[in-house]
Design a protein around this nucleic acid. Structure first.
Lengths: 184, 184
DNA sequence: CTTGCGCGAGAACCATCGTTCTCCTACGCT
DNA sequence: AGCGTAGGAGAACGATGGTTCTCGCGCAAG
């Protein structure tokens, strides 16, 4: 028998791939069982309902996504470089073969109206992202409004890249961000 | 008996309210029948499947949304004013009590991976919106890249307003747009 | 008048899905 | 060895949803 921790990881990995790739409602618990190789009984022991699995999926993705972004941006030499690097990171993300937009925007559009837990998780994710950009602009000695503006550009780039299937919006957003950064 | 045209309108109105307000998969055909007052038999005569009703809903919303935007923006005195008016119009839209983000982004996130028809409709809607903004920037004697940048701001404002539940992103996007407009 | 067609109301049908249950196997403890 | 418990595989259950069918009625043509 596999350990509970391993089982939990396998379930979360399968759930993330399936939920993100095909939409939450389009994926049944049976499919998560097949993909993870964990029995239904075990699955329900670890996550007592699909709703709790959805929350666990979103929470883990939130943390990992923001960690990866921060690791990339914080490695830059100056705050200005960090700000622009955000858009480079987005470009790399958009180019991944399974990129399908923002998991939080997607789940909000799908379930936000019927699940306040999903709506709240999406809101918290976006707020944390906004806060991070505002920290970067503060470190560069720029006003908080620049953080808001950059966040809108990034947000727009994500949905546009998802729907158009192109990574180009990241470069466009970066060009706009450079203008805003120099003007601020 | 009501005329087929009237029945079709009542169905589309009910479908739009329900699909947009609660998500497409969360709404059953029975609920559309109750809300529209049109019998299931008639409903299936006019729209042979839920998929075709979804497409009709999205097509009509695309046309109306872009018409309303263009009517508002084109009424301005100068191309520059038209560009900035786009964000005023967004602000009004965000303030509507049933605002829940972009119907196309939402349906793309929900069904884009499983329905190529939905994905394509969303793509066409965004492309038309982008094209419209590029026309405005061209009329103002600005480069096409400005149109792309404004589109990203608008797009970001829409999803941010939806998830945060605030109309403020429209004002923030307008401020950023003004900077980009003057710098271009 | 009567015959038949179109319609509305809603039951019926079939698939799917979230969740639970059954049955059987394997292993740990005494 | 024998017993009890946990776990896996998958059937079962109840609800829901998309789609179709049945039934009964009203109206229009002959």
């Amino acid at each position: 028998m596999i350990s509970p921790e391993t089982a939990e990881l396998k379930i979360l990995d399968a759930a993330e791939t399936l939920f993100y790739g095909r939409g939450i409602q389009a994926v049944g618990m049976d499919e998560i069982r097949s993909a993870s190789g964990v029995s239904l009984k075990r699955l329900y022991q670890l996550f007592p309902s699909k709703g709790e699995l959805i929350q666990a999926y979103l929470r883990r993705r939130d943390v990992r996504w923001r960690q990866k972004l921060a690791a990339y941006a914080d490695a830059q030499a100056t705050p200005e470089d960090s700000i622009l690097a955000v858009f480079d990171w987005l470009h790399e993300w958009f180019g991944e073969p399974d990129f399908r937009g923002c998991a939080f925007s997607n789940s909000f559009g799908e379930l936000g109206a019927t699940s306040s837990a999903v709506a709240e998780t999406a809101r918290a994710h976006k707020e944390a992202f906004f806060r991070y950009l505002t920290e970067l602009t503060a470190a560069a000695g720029k006003p908080a409004s620049l953080g808001d503006h950059l966040a809108l550009l990034a947000e727009g780039a994500i949905t546009t890249a998802a729907i158009s299937g192109s990574a180009e919006p990241a470069h466009q957003a970066k060009a706009a961000a450079r203008v805003l950064l120099e003007a601020a």
